[in-house]
Design a protein around this nucleic acid. Structure first.
Length: 480
RNA sequence: GGGAUCGUGGUCUAGCUUGGUAUGAUACUAGCCUGGGGGGCUAGUGGUCGCAGGUUCAAAUCCUGCUGAUCCCA
């Protein structure tokens, strides 16, 4: 077997973009579809998404949110009801104009997002304060035409996501919901994917079109570019008015409702690949890994094979009884070395090697993927495996946090800002709050306000661009 | 939005300038030997050169259109 095309052929350090694409394809998470900008998820990729979905569903349910399903086609007349929202999405909407050979009068959009459709229904379902709050979530795909620069998971014309839409009788309750969701997002991403995030608000310029304000979580990738990991919007009454989502309150006066919408997409998978992967390929956090442990049996002859395989089976059963996802690689005709590399490419968190030597010594060899460390465990120490997996999960988050810290800089001088932006990173820099400065910074450096972190309000500094009094210290970065 | 490069068995690739139905590696299948970090030998399978059209006796090669991918800049 040759190694030239099987593994990753470039280093993460030297050619990040190419490295990323190779990891996605070679670890068999996804492949390109025959249509531009679309990808296909393979079992290992989809399994990670399913794992995230399961976690989110549990947390949503605990918060009183239930799942529903919405169709993919939205008539133009509905999509156009909230003008700013429509104008924002229009350039990237796919349109269905024909059914068979007949032209469709009110052409149909492939949903870029479902606010307009959901709220048309909500206005039917809500009449009284007793119908509120209404909290629903939808697992589906959204379609937004990406003409250029597509990249698996990060920028595709169709993407898997969840979109939540809630309706409340008061502004306060809706705003609390916005934050509650952002919290769920943050702790899920940090606990499951081991990716640190910064949360806060988007600037006026960067907020969701149609929202009063947008809260967001952002992460910095190893190449110094920021990635939006999820957003939770306070819609106010911007949609409830045009869509007539209203209710009779206890005093029998009719009010427009207060709404939120929020979503995360499979971009999270892209972030996980970028943050944790290395030159050998994917590195999966144990919690979302489709296989947490792979066992590679090693033997020379039938006699050795039998004793090794019976031990392997015993260990497999022991681990499965502790709800560990185990796979035994009993493929014949492949050398152990080939298998080691293969599973490292696919990012399995722990590999167990068992051969004649180990049977003799009453131990197993355990290799950790995230740091490539190998340790020996006695046969009686198998129950330590779940603990080791937990440690790996913790260590991966720690490592990612350290990485984030090293590329997060406090910069209050604009010339320093400009000279360092080429290398990328999160820049904490004071800002006066004016969109003119934001625009100029974007124009001159390519960096934008990714997030204005909660608690970053401050009036004691000078705007990095115009030197006037600051209102906050946002995180600036170039983005994906 | 602007620019550049590219598309040949599953994968990577030679051939293209100077037209004559395709090179090598790897993968895959079978057998034997091997087996603790991408093994060896032997014998096989697999493509009609991204798609459509044009020029020609003849097109992977020349021309046109389309499509897809990658990278750089805004």
């Amino acid at each position: 077997m040759g190694k030239q095309n099987v593994g990753i052929t470039v280093s993460k350090e030297e050619d990040f973009s190419e490295w990323y694409t190779q990891v996605v394809l070679k670890a068999k998470l996804a492949d390109y579809a025959p249509v531009k900008g679309l990808i296909v998820l393979r079992p290992d990729g989809y399994s990670i998404w399913e794992s995230l979905r399961t976690t989110f569903d549990k947390k949503f349910a605990r918060n009183g949110i239930r799942n529903g399903f919405l169709p993919i086609l939205i008539p133009e007349s509905l999509l156009g009801k909230e003008q700013k929202h429509f104008a924002g999405f229009n350039p990237e909407v796919f349109w269905v104009t024909h059914s068979g050979t007949n032209e469709i009068g009110d052409r149909l959009a492939l949903r870029p997002t479902s606010e307009t459709l959901a709220y048309t229904l909500y206005s039917k379902w809500i009449q009284s304060w007793r119908d509120l709050p209404l909290k629903m979530n939808f697992w589906n795909t959204a379609l937004r035409a990406e003409i250029k620069a597509t990249k698996p998971f990060l920028r595709t014309s169709e993407f898997l996501w969840q979109e939540g839409h809630t309706v409340h009788s008061t502004k306060e309750e809706a705003e609390k919901e916005v934050i509650k969701i952002l919290d769920i997002y943050k702790n899920t991403v940090e606990e499951e994917l081991a990716i640190p995030v910064s949360t806060g608000k988007k600037s006026e310029k960067e907020k969701f079109v149609g929202a009063i304000y947008t809260t967001t979580m952002e992460s910095i990738m190893p190449d110094g570019k920021a990635l939006q990991m999820g957003t939770s919007h306070f819609l106010g009454q911007n949609f409830s008015k045009p869509f007539e989502v209203k209710f009779a309150d206890k005093d029998n006066v009719e009010h427009f409702a207060w709404q939120t919408s929020w979503g995360v997409s499979w971009r999270l998978i892209g972030a996980m690949i970028m943050i944790h992967g290395d030159d050998k390929g994917l590195v999966l956090p144990p919690k979302v890994a489709p296989m947490q442990v792979v066992i590679v049996p090693i033997y020379k002859n039938d006699e050795g094979k039998n004793s090794v395989l019976s031990k392997v089976e015993e260990i497999q059963n022991k681990l499965e009884s502790k709800d560990i996802r185990v796979h035994v690689d009993d493929r014949e005709g492949m050398s152990p070395g080939y298998k080691f590399n293969d599973w490292e490419l696919k990012g399995v968190p722990l590999r167990i090697e068992i051969g004649p030597k180990d049977i003799e010594n009453q131990n197993i060899v355990v290799a950790k993927r995230y740091n490539l460390e190998k340790i020996s465990l006695g046969f009686t120490e198998i129950e330590k495996i779940p603990i080791i997996l937990d440690e790996i999960q913790t260590q991966m988050l720690k490592k990612a946090k350290e990485q984030t810290e090293t590329i997060t800089l406090n910069i209050s001088d604009y010339s320093e800002f400009k000279s360092k932006i080429e290398k990328g990173g999160f820049f904490n820099s004071p800002w006066c709050g004016k969109v003119e400065c934001e625009d100029k910074i974007k124009e001159e450096t390519g960096a934008e306000i990714r997030v204005i972190p909660f608690g970053s309000e401050n009036i004691n500094q000078k705007c990095i661009y115009c030197n006037e009094q600051s209102v906050s210290t946002p995180i600036f970065a170039r983005g994906y």
